[in-house]
Simulated assay, not measured.
Amino acid sequence: MTRKPLRFLACIAAIATAGHAETPKERTVAAIEAAGCSIDDTNVNEVLDGLGLSDAAFRAIGQELVAEGRADVSQTGTFRLTTPACTATGEVQTARAIAAIEAAGCIVDRSNINEILDGLGLADDEFRVIGEALIAEGRAQVSDAGAFQLTTPNCN
């Protein structure tokens, strides 16, 4: 008699779990958000490997996200999510920009600007807004030579 109620509960749990399972699209969005909200040649394989999707399925989900206005593709081919988790007051983009500039030696100038922008998937205007905010906050400055220089703890 105790087996029947247990089996019934197990069936109900299995049905409830299947009903609440993430869809491939939800898993894809979560994986891209975890990868910094953008995908390019440097991280696409890592994101794809973790999802277990075919290239075609991954591409179809990407196209759906763009059509829904939840993502865009930059001129350099970088796929960027525009979900609330990725656009929340620009904090994610600013943090990514700071990390990229720190990795480039804390300075952005003519020799590395294109590489940094391509890696971030940012347009010039988007980067300018982030840079101006960092300067206003005292976390960056422009040198006499015109280079953008971070003044964050990792750059002092």
Rank of each mutant, 00 (worst) to 15 (best):
L134Q: 01
D41H: 08
A140I: 01
R3G: 06
G19E: 14
S54D: 08
G77P: 01
G62H: 05
C86G: 07
A67R: 14
D124C: 07
G131D: 11
V66W: 07
R27E: 14
V66K: 14
G36H: 09
T83Y: 02
G119A: 09
T78Y: 00
T76P: 00
R80C: 02
V73H: 01
V29H: 02
F58Y: 13
E132D: 15
G36F: 01
K4V: 14
L6I: 13
A71E: 02
E137P: 02
A60M: 08
Q149R: 14
L120T: 11
G105D: 13
I98M: 06
G69F: 05
P84I: 03
A136E: 11
S38T: 12
A56F: 05
V47Q: 05
E46W: 03
E137D: 14
E33P: 10
R3K: 13
D49F: 04
D41L: 13
F79E: 10
T2N: 12
G69T: 10
E91G: 08
A71H: 05
D144G: 15
H20I: 15
A30Q: 06
F148Y: 10
D109Q: 08
Q75H: 08
Q141M: 10
A136G: 12
E115G: 15
C37R: 04
R128I: 08
R80K: 03
V66C: 09
A136K: 10
L120Q: 07
E115K: 11
P24A: 13
G36L: 04
G90T: 09
A14D: 09
A140C: 07
S111C: 04
C86L: 06
A147R: 14
P24M: 08
D41I: 15
T152Q: 07
G131C: 12
T28C: 09
S54H: 03
R70E: 12
T83N: 06
S74A: 12
A14N: 09
R7K: 14
R59C: 02
N156G: 12
L48N: 02
T151Q: 05
I12N: 04
D40M: 03
Q93E: 08
A123W: 07
N112I: 10
A88N: 12
V29T: 10
D124H: 14
L134S: 01
A104P: 01
A88I: 13
S54Q: 09
S143V: 07
L122G: 01
G19F: 15
E26L: 08
G19N: 13
T76E: 09
A34M: 11
G36T: 10
D55V: 15
T94Q: 03
T28Q: 10
T83V: 07
A57H: 09
C106L: 06
A103E: 12
T28N: 06
T152K: 03
V66G: 05
R96S: 02
G138K: 10
C106P: 05
I107P: 00
G131M: 13
Q141A: 11
A16H: 06
F148M: 06
G105M: 08
Q149L: 14
V142T: 15
A10E: 13
Q75A: 12
T17Y: 12
